[in-house]
Design a protein around this nucleic acid. Sequence first.
DNA 1: GTCCCGTAAG
DNA 2: CTTACTGGAC
Length: 221
Amino acid sequence: MAIVKTIYKRLLQSYGPQLWWPAETEFEVMVGAVLTQHTSWTNVEKSITSLNKKNALHIEAIMQMPETELSTLIRPSGFHRVKAKTLISLATLIHEQYDGSVEKLKKLPSNKKRIILLGVKGIGPETADDILLYALNEPCFVIDEYTKRIFKRVGKTPNNGSYNSWQKMLDKEFKGSLNEMREYHALLVVLGKNHCKSDPNCTGCPLVDICVYGSSHMSAS
DNA sequence: GTCCCGTAAG
DNA sequence: CTTACTGGAC
């Protein structure tokens, strides 16, 4: 079986369904996707909690909130000034162009949705794909640092290292349902946190035997 | 001091 | 390509 499918099966078997994204609403998924940029999820949770306490985890509240107040609320997530601008731009876009309805956004063709998201300053390809996958029901491969690191070590790398070439390579080899695409990204993140860190910990990794890096780093120890 | 589910700007 | 953006956990 092709390596990309094999890895999915292994990870699902090892870790079970992850049922991502952890959020109450689709807009909350979007907020979380922005806040978790280069930031650990535990810090994002602090921000989400603060926003919830202010009853501010919805489009109108974010849109109307003074930038300084919002940036204070999301402080634990880091890059808070930049991220506050991004969240206000995103909320304003949905409010003004789509009647404040995520459902309207969702109904647009997938390529258009992606272009719209990428048009928001502060939303790049990874965040756009997170939002497409977990908020707008659009199956796609999210290419984050974990994904690249894991597939590089396993021995599966695209011709050039661009975001698009990674995505094309993986989308081509794994045509999954929406739910499977959601699970795959979640499972790769779990593997990245548990084993495939920048300083790798191959002991107990469910992929050691099929990983180029893992195979050459387990014998000696 | 290093690492977090990055992005924009120079 | 490099650097700025930022704070919290370990």
